[in-house]
C-alpha cells in the first residue's frame, strides 16, 4: 500500500503540495487526474523515489522510496510521459533490465509485443512514437512489478492503440498489482480506472472508487439542464447533469463530467466525499 502523509513539496519557490495525505490501496488501477501543472508527475516521482519530500512522508509497503533501495525498486516500474529509449531493440533492452526484477517474464514480453503489434526486430529509433510507447509498455508489464506508474501513457497513441492499451492493462495486471495512471485524457482510460484521484494545486480533491462516487453523486442523462447541478454539459441528444445522489439512485460515472464538477465545486465535493 502507498501511504502519503502530510506531504509538503516545492520546486525552489513553487509550492506543489502542501500537507497532503493520500492512500493508494493494493490491487487497484488508479486514475490520477488534474489540470496541467498540479503535480501529477511530481506525485508519481515522489512515490518512485525520484524526488524527496520536504516534509511529511511517502511509504510504499513500509519502505521509503527516496532511499531507492533495491527491495523497493524491484517492485516498481515508472513509465514516464516522454519516450526515452536506448539505441537498441526492445528485446535487448528488456533483457538488459529484466534480470533485476524477480517476476520478469520474457515469454510475456514477446506475447505483449505481439498483442500490441510492435515489430520485435526493429530498434527503438526505427519505431514511431506510438510504437515506442507500446514497446515500453510491453517491457513494463513483462516485469510484473507490484506497482506500475504510467505518466500520460496514451499520449501519442492512435485510436486502435488506445484500445489495445486498455486491453493489455486490464488483462495482464494481476490482482496484486497497483497501477497509477496519470492522465488528462480521461476518455482514454474510461472503463479502466477505478478509483479516481483528483489533484488540485496544493490539495487532493477526490480519492474515491466508482462505487463511493456513485453512492454520493448521481450522473443524470436527460433532455434538460438542471439548475442546482454540480455541473451540466450539453451532449449530443441532451444534457449530462452531475447531481448530489440524495435518493441513492444508480448511475454510471462520466469521468469528464465528474472532473469538471469537482473543479467547479471543490470544497463542496471534497466535503461530500469525506
Amino acid at each position: 500500500m502507498i501511504k502519503i502523509n502530510n506531504l509538503d513539496f516545492a520546486y525552489k519557490n513553487t509550492q506543489v503540495f502542501k500537507s497532503i495525505s493520500l492512500e493508494f490501496q493494493k490491487g487497484n488501477i488508479y486514475g490520477l487526474l488534474g489540470e496541467n501543472g498540479v503535480g501529477k508527475t511530481t506525485l508519481l516521482k515522489l512515490i518512485c523515489g525520484l524526488q524527496t519530500p520536504q516534509h511529511g512522508s511517502v511509504t510504499v509497503d513500509e519502505l521509503t522510496p527516496s532511499e531507492r533501495q533495491p527491495e523497493f525498486l524491484q517492485n516498481v516500474y515508472f513509465l514516464p510521459e516522454e519516450v526515452i529509449t536506448e539505441d537498441t531493440t526492445p528485446e535487448k533492452f528488456i533483457q538488459k533490465i529484466g534480470c533485476f526484477y524477480p517476476r520478469y517474464d520474457f515469454g510475456l514480453f514477446n506475447k505483449l509485443m505481439g498483442e500490441l503489434e510492435v515489430d520485435l526486430s526493429k530498434k527503438f529509433n526505427e519505431l514511431s512514437h506510438g510504437q515506442k510507447k507500446k514497446a515500453l509498455l510491453a517491457c513494463a508489464l513483462s516485469l510484473q512489478t507490484d506497482y506500475l506508474f504510467l505518466d500520460e501513457p496514451t499520449n501519442g497513441l492512435d485510436i486502435p492503440s488506445k484500445a489495445l492499451f486498455r486491453k493489455v492493462i486490464s488483462q495482464y495486471c494481476s490482482d496484486e498489482t497497483t497501477v497509477i495512471i496519470s492522465t488528462h485524457q480521461v476518455k482514454d482510460v474510461e472503463n479502466l480506472i477505478d478509483p479516481i484521484v483528483i489533484l488540485d494545486r496544493d490539495d487532493v480533491l477526490l480519492n474515491a472508487s466508482f462505487a463511493e462516487i456513485t453512492d454520493k453523486i448521481y450522473f443524470e442523462y436527460g433532455p434538460e439542464r438542471i439548475q442546482n447541478a454540480y455541473y451540466t454539459e450539453m451532449l449530443p441528444g441532451g444534457y449530462i447533469n452531475v447531481l448530489p445522489n440524495t435518493e441513492h439512485m444508480e448511475s454510471n460515472v462520466n469521468i469528464e463530467a465528474l472532473f469538471n464538477a469537482v473543479m467547479k465545486n471543490k470544497e463542496t465535493i471534497k466535503n461530500l466525499m469525506k
Binding site: P70, L73, V76, F78, P80, I97
Partner: peptide, 8 residues
C-alpha cells in the same frame, strides 16, 4: 530515470 530506477 531508467538509471535511477534500476533495482540496485
Amino acid at each position: 530515470i531508467g538509471y535511477a530506477m534500476l533495482p540496485a
